[in-house]
Structure formats: structure tokens, C-alpha cells
Amino acid sequence: MEHEADLIEELIADHREIDGLFEQFDERPPGCIERKLLLEALTIELVRHAVAEEMHLYPAVREHLENGAPRADYEIAEHSSIEERLKDLEGRDAEDRDLDRLVRELRTEVRAHVEDEERHLFPQLRDGAPPFVLAQLGQKARTAKNATLPRGHPRAPGIAPLNEILAPGVGLVDRVREQATNRGHPVTS
């Protein structure tokens, strides 16, 4: 029988995937269109990950950790800051002189957030929440991520709903968040 990742393992796997996208971005030469595509993929993954944490991790932090509510609020504020950086990057061309600096700043902020979660928050939650709860939340996070957006590189804009997310109009960050949270769509039972 194959082991399914619990919530913490699932989120750590996301962290590694996000770090890999940053590395791929760094490997491409400045001005290269692939960098813009990687930045779009990174944006999608960061927002998906943030939504998964906001839907499943932070409610568990509130419930299972002493003083969990202020900690969850702090983490959500960090997400807002990261999303603002992503929004600033949205309108930038691959040739933009500030692109490298802005991506470095984003990566620094994301790394600090990830390090804090992995060194402090995740061990506290592992000690505070029953394993079956973390396993259930891991399944819920996987289901939510898989149901909202296809993983992978945004080079295939003909694949729904990715074509809607990359369509012009509202910014990418807002479109991904809207799709991931099903905002604006009627709830079906």
C-alpha cells in the first residue's frame, strides 16, 4: 500500500516544487521568454500553495496550537505580502531591468516564510495535531489543488481552466486565487 502524504508532507513537497521553479528561472538568460513563462508557473504554484495553506493549514493551526490564531493571522499577512510582490511582477516583460531584482526579493521573502514554517510551525503542528487529522487534511489539500488547476508549465494555454487563468483581464494572481477558491462560482451539492 502506498503512503499518502499528510498535510505537512504535502506542503513541504510544494515548497520543493516552488524552489525548483525559482532555480529554473535563474538558469535562463535575462530577456528569455521562458523566464516569463516560468514566472507565470511560479505565480500559479505560489497562489495554489497559499490557498491550500489558508484552507487547511491555518485552520488546523488555530485549532491545535496554543496561540494558534495570531500565528495563523501572521502567516496569512505574509501571504498577502508575497501576493503583492507577484502582482508587481505580473506586468513586467522578460526584458525588464528590474525583473531579476524583484524575483530575488520575492525568493528571499518566500524562502524566509518556508524556513519559518518548516523549522517552527510544522513541528509544532505535528506535535499538536493528531496524525489522522494531518492525514485527512493532506488528502483535502491534494484534492483541492488537483480539482482547481492543472499542474505544470503554462505553455499549454488550450487546457481549461489554464486558458482562462492566462487570459487577459484581471491579473494572474487574482485569477488563480479566484479559480482555486472557486470564488464567484455557485456551490453545487
Score class of each variant (00 low, 15 high):
123 P>I: 07
54 E>W: 06
155 R>V: 00
27 E>G: 07
26 D>C: 05
82 I>S: 12
132 F>E: 08
74 Y>G: 10
104 R>A: 10
160 A>H: 11
35 R>E: 09
148 T>I: 10
163 N>E: 12
15 H>D: 04
15 H>R: 08
145 K>C: 14
17 E>W: 13
27 E>K: 14
36 K>L: 05
122 F>S: 01
54 E>F: 07
106 L>M: 09
58 Y>A: 06
107 R>I: 00
160 A>I: 05
34 E>S: 11
139 Q>V: 07
59 P>Q: 10
162 L>M: 13
109 E>S: 14
69 A>Q: 11
130 P>I: 04
14 D>T: 00
72 A>T: 06
177 R>L: 13
36 K>H: 09
188 T>F: 09
53 E>C: 02
102 L>A: 11
66 E>D: 10
15 H>C: 02
171 G>T: 01
13 A>I: 01
5 A>K: 13
13 A>Y: 12
110 V>P: 03
127 D>C: 07
184 G>D: 03
65 L>W: 15
81 S>T: 05
126 R>G: 07
86 L>T: 05
136 Q>F: 10
21 L>S: 10
35 R>Y: 15
145 K>W: 13
107 R>W: 08
78 E>V: 07
75 E>S: 11
114 V>M: 14
44 I>P: 00
138 G>N: 10
8 I>G: 02
16 R>Y: 15
72 A>E: 13
54 E>N: 08
188 T>L: 06
111 R>P: 03
72 A>P: 00
155 R>C: 11
171 G>D: 01
163 N>T: 10
172 L>S: 06
183 R>L: 03
133 V>R: 15
133 V>K: 15
147 A>F: 03
69 A>S: 11
86 L>V: 02
172 L>H: 01
49 H>C: 02
160 A>F: 14
134 L>P: 03
84 E>R: 15
13 A>F: 14
149 L>P: 04
119 R>A: 06
178 E>F: 01
143 T>V: 13
181 T>V: 01
175 R>T: 05
5 A>N: 05
123 P>Q: 04
160 A>G: 05
167 A>H: 02
11 L>I: 01
56 H>W: 12
97 R>P: 04
